[in-house]
């Protein structure tokens, strides 16, 4: 039942634990005590590699729309704006990461969590199988994007 799925990124195996849900912006979503905790999937971390900087532009208590810009990340290979994975209210940011974001690389499913939100519904999220299919469907396009640096 709780068997993780694996998505092959070329030779790299991105393991997707089955104990949580997933978002289209490549974050996982884990519910506990009424809040939803989010973090980067292994797929996202593999694309970014070593995280150098993490910057948040929102504060706990902020109401966020889906895809509201929440911050920015810079890594050894990439940079990106970050967006709210679902609509809801921001509860907490992982303060540890601001001092040292390396937990994102070391333990992306645990200590490297990003933020917590409350939401009316998590209907936007995907099951592990759905996320796996989502990755498979986008993989070729993603590879082209990486090659083209677009």
């Amino acid at each position: 039942m709780n068997k993780p799925l694996t998505f092959m990124m070329g030779k790299f195996a991105a393991v997707l634990p089955a104990d949580r849900r997933y978002c289209r912006n490549h974050m996982w979503c884990l519910q506990s005590d009424g809040v939803l905790r989010f973090g980067f999937t292994t797929y996202a971390v593999r694309l970014m590699q070593d995280v150098y900087f993490l910057d948040w532009e929102v504060n706990p208590g902020d109401a966020l729309a889906l895809n509201h810009k929440v911050g920015h990340i810079e890594t050894s290979k990439a940079m990106s704006d970050l967006f709210a994975p679902i609509a809801g209210t921001l509860v907490r940011l992982n303060a540890e990461l601001l001092n040292d974001p390396s937990a994102i690389n070391v333990d992306n499913h645990g200590q490297g969590w990003l933020f917590e939100m409350t939401a009316v519904s998590d209907a936007e999220t995907l099951s592990v199988q759905e996320y796996h299919d989502f990755l498979a469907a986008g993989w070729e396009k993603t590879q082209n994007m990486l090659k083209g640096h677009m």
Binding site: R24, N25, H26, A44, L47, M48, N67, K69, H72, E74, T75, K77, A78, M79, S80, D81, L82, F83, A84, P85, T142, M145, L146, H149
Partner: peptide, 28 residues
């Protein structure tokens, strides 16, 4: 600005730059 073309990168020379994953991570 994070996009090289806007930050003053030479036209056509985008080698060795960081990849912008914004679209992948939910940017429109």
């Amino acid at each position: 600005y994070k996009t090289p073309a806007i930050a003053g990168a030479p036209i056509g020379a985008i080698g060795n730059l960081k990849i912008d994953l914004t679209k992948l991570f939910g940017g429109a």
